[in-house]
């Protein structure tokens, strides 16, 4: 009986695709200056990225099983991308195109860690992580 359960389990897990429950521990990186007591994070797979002028609307399925979304907006595009990192390093304007495929859709498997600070004067920081590194 257990063998049957196990077989069904493995088959069904494979249908769920690449999403995994994470078994990690994150450190707060140096570029996040928010008081840690006021900090949280969303880590997971990006499901929506839309730029409209100087704002970005994005959604993420976190590795711990929640769906989150937010909009970041600035007075200029430079202000917005100043809040971005790519694999931990500073983000440049040219990096934006790397998040998308040739058809303009965000790349499959694109991930991010989004750092959210409770303090009003600290905007979120998005550390993008490209798939298939």
């Amino acid at each position: 009986m257990n063998t049957i359960y196990h077989f069904i389990f493995v088959c069904m897990l494979s249908l769920l695709g690449s999403s995994e429950v994470a078994a990690q521990r994150l450190a707060v990186p140096e570029y996040v200056t928010c008081d840690r007591n006021q900090l949280t994070s969303w880590q997971g797979e990006i499901t929506r990225v839309n730029r409209k002028g100087n704002s970005v609307d994005l959604a993420i399925e976190t590795d711990y099983g929640t769906s989150e979304s937010m909009t970041m907006a600035g007075a200029s595009w430079e202000e917005v991308i100043a809040q971005f990192r790519l694999a931990g390093r500073p983000f440049t304007a040219d990096d934006w195109s790397q998040l998308f495929d040739t058809e303009g859709n965000h790349r499959r498997g694109l991930r991010a860690i989004i750092w959210l600070c409770q303090a009003d004067d600290q905007p979120p920081i998005v550390n993008w992580q490209l798939p298939g590194r």
Binding site: W42, T66, E68, M70, T71, M72, A73, V80, Q83, P123
Partner: peptide, 10 residues
């Protein structure tokens, strides 16, 4: 200069 609206209420 970057403002935020977020859902999920993390």
């Amino acid at each position: 200069g970057v403002a935020l609206a977020q859902s999920g209420a993390a």
